[in-house]
Design a protein around this nucleic acid. Sequence first.
DNA 1: TTTACTTAGTGGCATATGCCACTGTTTGCG
DNA 2: CGCAAACAGTGGCATATGCCACTAAGTAAA
Lengths: 152, 152
Amino acid sequence: MSKDPLPGLTLCNNAVLRRATRKLGQFYDDVVAPSGLKATQQGLLYQIHIGDEPAMGAIAGALVMDLSALGHTLKPLIRDGYVETFTDPNDRRIKRVRLTPQGLIKLDEAMKLWRVAQQRFEDMVGKEQAAMLRAALDDIAALDFGIPPAAP
Amino acid sequence: MSKDPLPGLTLCNNAVLRRATRKLGQFYDDVVAPSGLKATQQGLLYQIHIGDEPAMGAIAGALVMDLSALGHTLKPLIRDGYVETFTDPNDRRIKRVRLTPQGLIKLDEAMKLWRVAQQRFEDMVGKEQAAMLRAALDDIAALDFGIPPAAP
DNA sequence: TTTACTTAGTGGCATATGCCACTGTTTGCG
DNA sequence: CGCAAACAGTGGCATATGCCACTAAGTAAA
């Protein structure tokens, strides 16, 4: 017998997505917590790490995140000395981001924990199921809802 | 040919989920915006509406959301007169929530817009695909990662 | 009943995200 | 060259969420 799972809004794609995000976020956060980072921060450090001193705009684009939101999220990481920024010498509008040595160490530490969370999650839902889910979510993140503003 | 979609972190279930949430959230927000509500608020009003003057804890449970977070999220809605709370006469610890008349009107208005967003989204990803996705996300929200604390 | 435990919310603090208005920079043109 | 349009970020303000410490209210055990 399957215990009646969750009540309510199981109809709105957005609401269901948010709810799952809260749940999974708490789990990853819990597991990664010993590093002192939130799962979001670990992910951000990773994103910076795999980039070549990426510009803020590039990071925001990759994460489908508002540029100013990225700026805010970056602050605690800069304050704690894990990340530093510098102006691109070729285009002074651009500010690039990179990990500090401590940031790299911290990322290593967090990644070890992340692997545990990732593994535990995939053990529960199945590796393939997880991969399919990620693919579906990637598609959503890449969707192109038309342009709201007016055309010239 | 499939244009290389999104770079980076396409490995972390949590990060991918968050990214999709940001994207979809922006879309639903945009569409629902004319009502003056965020998609999250519309969803919350709806959740309250379908409940029978639900207790805060019940709402938080259904949304897999922290109780205090719910309290915070509720504040703007109370301030704007869409929602009101009252103490349960049988158990004065419990605070129940209900829509005000204006809240009901506003919800109606927002739901009309929501349907547009929902429809547009499902036209893009496919009705069945969307249903499968919701089911998968529901499963995640219902997952039971073991209990972190120690046992007696 | 008196005490100990459990339950339901609140308030404070911190991060996560967005939008908008505004400030520098670059670039494109006339 | 000089100015308008396009870009990249910043800061302020508001919502979304969480955790923790604390208070008020039931409940159960002594």
